[in-house]
Design a binder for these strands. Structure first.
Lengths: 140, 140
DNA sequence: AATATAAATCGAAACCATTTCGATTTAGGA
DNA sequence: TCCTAAATCGAAATGGTTTCGATTTATATT
């Protein structure tokens, strides 16, 4: 699992490869679960004592703008981020409620649902998002 | 469209029928779109000058606890609420990005997706939520 | 290698939707 | 009508996130 593809993407989007950005991507590539900005701040703080929280928030947002990270929001209203491993394909996510592990699911069968809505409600469906929660193979 | 069924539900859940709660339900029954707490505060303020914002937040949360309102969160990270017209049936929501109108969609074909996840990822899917966005029949 | 400069980071303060809490008022049963 | 737990008030606190001017740094260029 190399992070080069993510660094390349960062560069292509006009961002500089800074130690903190690199460390952030490395952190997420090792974690298969989602992390809060606070958690990222704490982890990065081991390598970069005194790192500013505004830097962490900014980096996370930039990485999600480039499609490297995906942002979700929990019921507790906090933001969480995780590494997107299928950036070029439409997909959905399964979230383990116990260990927060994220599984990316390539199957999408919402076309029927969209047709139903178009036909019965005369609406134009532009996008959809599915959130699946439960227990992953390790936790169930 | 009577709101009695909602008032009954409120009472059953041990809540008193106060003028503000009643007015809140009436407001949502007239609006087919979702409203922010601020908007509710403003509207209720017409009938109840000086109503406290904490009261509005509390009422909205109580109504969503009883299943009368549904809470969603926008990209702007604000909370929004809307009246649930199909409280006793599993369903999904279509949200018009222009007028915020909510359409409730009884069709759900996520069983296949859940089977796929159970089989391929060995996960236990406990719940799912689908969010469909686009333009409603009035706005498209 | 040195320089230039736009981008990145710092850090303290502001932001602001939401929550809290003690005091006051009220709905609804007795 | 009275009683009491529930509801509301309202001002203050909360806290995750954003802002912004000052400082530092990555990297393209010389």
């Amino acid at each position: 699992m190399t992070i080069d593809v993510y660094l390349k993407k960062l560069k292509e989007d006009g961002f500089k490869i800074t130690p903190k950005r690199k460390a952030t991507i490395e952190l997420f590539s090792k974690k298969k679960s989602y992390l809060s900005p606070q958690e990222v701040l704490e982890k990065l703080g081991n390598h970069f004592p005194g790192i500013s929280s505004s830097t962490v928030y900014r980096i996370l947002e930039e990485l999600q703008d480039t499609g490297i990270l995906i942002k979700i929001e929990h019921e507790d209203r906090q933001l969480y981020y995780f590494l997107c491993r299928m950036p070029d394909q439409h997909h959905h996510h399964f979230i383990c409620r116990k260990c927060r592990r994220i599984e990316e699911v390539e199957l999408c069968n919402l076309k029927e649902l969209e047709r139903f809505i178009s036909k019965n409600l005369n609406c134009k469906v532009e996008n959809h998002s599915v959130r699946l929660e439960g227990l992953c193979s390790h936790c169930k």
